[in-house]
Amino acid sequence: MVSKEEILEGLAKAVIDGDEVKSEELAKKSLELGIDPYEALMNGCNKGMAKVSELYECKEMFVPEILLSADAMYAAIDILKPHLKVDASAKKPAKVIIGVAQGDIHDIGKNLVKMMLEVAGFILIDVGKDVPVDKFVKKAEEEDADLVTISALMTTSMMYMEPVIKQLKAKNHKAKVIVGGAPINPDFAKKIGADGYGKDAVEAVKVAKNLIGA
C-alpha cells in the first residue's frame, strides 16, 4: 500500500525529473486514494516546481530540463484540475496578462515565466508573441488584470514596452507592469516607467508577488 506522503513525494520527484508518465500515473493514483487534489497539486506538483525554480536559479537546471518538468506538471494538473473543489469564499487569485513585445517572436522565456507564475497561483492570460501595444492594453481592460508582464529579446522590440505602460497609465488602469528579457535591465525598466523588472522567470515571480502584496 502506497502512503499519501509517498504519492506526494513521488509527484514532486516526477516533476523535478520531468517524468510525464510517472506524474500522470501518480496523479491518477492520488485520486484513487482519495487524496485532496488541491493537496496533490500544492504539496506534490508545486513543491517539485519550487525545487525546479531553485535549481534553475543556481544554474543546476536549464531550459530543456525545465520544459520537461513543465510537461510533467501540466500532465498532473490536467488530471487533478477537474476534481478541484471550488471555494467561493476564497480570495480570488491575481490575473496576469503575459506576452512578448511587438516585433518579437522569441517566446521560450515568456513561457517559462508563465509556467512559474501559474505554479505560484496566478491566473495567466497568454496573449502570445509579437503582440501589438493595443492588444496588451485591451486585454488588460477586458480581463481587469492585476499585472501585465512583457518580455522582449531584441533591442527593436523592447521599444514597444513603454507605449503599453503609457497607455495603461493614461487610462488609469490598476495593472502593474513587469518587464524582462535579454536586453532589459533595471535602469531601462525604471526609465520606461515599469513597476517591476525580472531578470529571469524566478525573479519575475518574486517581483509579481511583491507588487500584488501576496
Binding site: I105, T156, S157
Partner: peptide, 9 residues
C-alpha cells in the same frame, strides 16, 4: 513589421 529586427521563421 514594426519591432522586427531580422528574418524570422
Amino acid at each position: 513589421g514594426e519591432g522586427h529586427s531580422a528574418p524570422y521563421v
